[in-house]
Design a protein around this nucleic acid. Structure first.
Lengths: 180, 180
DNA sequence: AATGGCATGTAATGTGTTACATGATTCG
DNA sequence: CGAATCATGTAACACATTACATGCCATT
């Protein structure tokens, strides 16, 4: 069985073979807003994927005490990835600390409650600006409109990020009005 | 330190003292779409909250091999909850298996890719219908518009759920067009 | 008499974060 | 020469899921 993180790594390696270190940075940059992982989780997962024959590595130098490993998909790994893509999507288990706070908002005075909403709005505004910068960056690449190009898929996930944040900002307005 | 789950439980107990079993069902019904937890996680967490003085229990019978316990907030627990509400919101770490799939969508043929989007749409449509039923239910209670009533806060979180799903459905249209 | 809901717990395993540990290369 | 970046790993801990375990009470 391949974990969600495993599928994330296979997906990145399908784009381009690379090192665990660079996978860590890629996840931080490209996937962080929908799937986060630290290097301490990524290195063992790569080892497991290799043990199960989904990836293989070649040593490409040694910038430190240990060898630098370049990972790539095996034919089997690629097959497993494509198969998974077509399976039924597992329902998202949301864990939203903001909604957790809001679910107890009735305990606060009006002004304090509005302050909470204000903080949510600020955080969302920042996120939205970030995602919109990402989107502009990706749109400047011609391949962004080609459904078989990796950047197309990345652009699509950023679009969802943007729409999520816009929805959240609209919701802040809705809530704020009701607290007026 | 109180965990996120701890805050969720304190929030529910602030509404009404009750048993661990009913907290499990409440979370499943009212919070599941933004904070999920099984009973095997809830019982130990209640014990920890009690050890730290945030809740206390009284035995109210024994519908089984062990005593049935009714938990309620202590003054200290209520204070801790209200204080946490006003703290800076921790940025949501998204873990969205749907976006994980979409980030590798470029690997698929056009028809297969559209099928993936179709499955996402179906799931979202179902969710939206569910949340809209919840919303209608809550709106039928007069207190739903009173910001100091618990049902107001629940209604607000459902509103966010509805807006999220609508945003996701719109995004499915956006994606589908680009895959046409 | 069987089924389902009420009720509480533990054990094993899986997933994710923080902290510890090491050392080469490159740029200023 | 110092700082940042490249690079890989392990250990300890926290959080979450699945499976195991028990037994009363009410309804059909």
């Amino acid at each position: 069985m391949i974990s969600a993180l495993g599928h994330a790594l296979l997906g990145l390696l399908a784009r381009e073979p690379t090192t665990g270190y660079r996978l860590t940075r890629l996840m931080d940059r490209d996937l962080a807003y929908f799937w986060a992982a630290k290097h301490s989780q990524i290195y063992p997962e790569l080892a497991r994927l290799e043990r199960d024959g989904h990836v293989r590595h070649t040593v490409v130098g040694g910038a430190g005490p240990r060898p630098t490993k370049r990972y790539e998909l095996t034919a089997d790994g690629r097959r497993a990835l494509v198969e998974w893509l077509a399976t039924e999507p597992e329902p998202t288990v949301e864990r939203d600390p903001t909604l957790l706070r809001v679910s107890s908002l009735w305990l606060l005075e009006r002004e304090a409650a509005r302050a909470v909403v204000g903080r949510v709005r600020r955080l969302s505004t920042e996120r939205l600006a970030l995602y919109e910068r990402f989107a502009a960056e990706f749109d400047s690449e011609p391949a962004a409109s080609d459904p078989t190009a990796p950047v197309f898929a990345t652009r699509a996930t950023v679009e969802m990020g943007i729409r999520s944040q816009r929805a959240r900002l609209d919701w802040c307005d809705w809530l704020d009005q009701r607290l007026a």
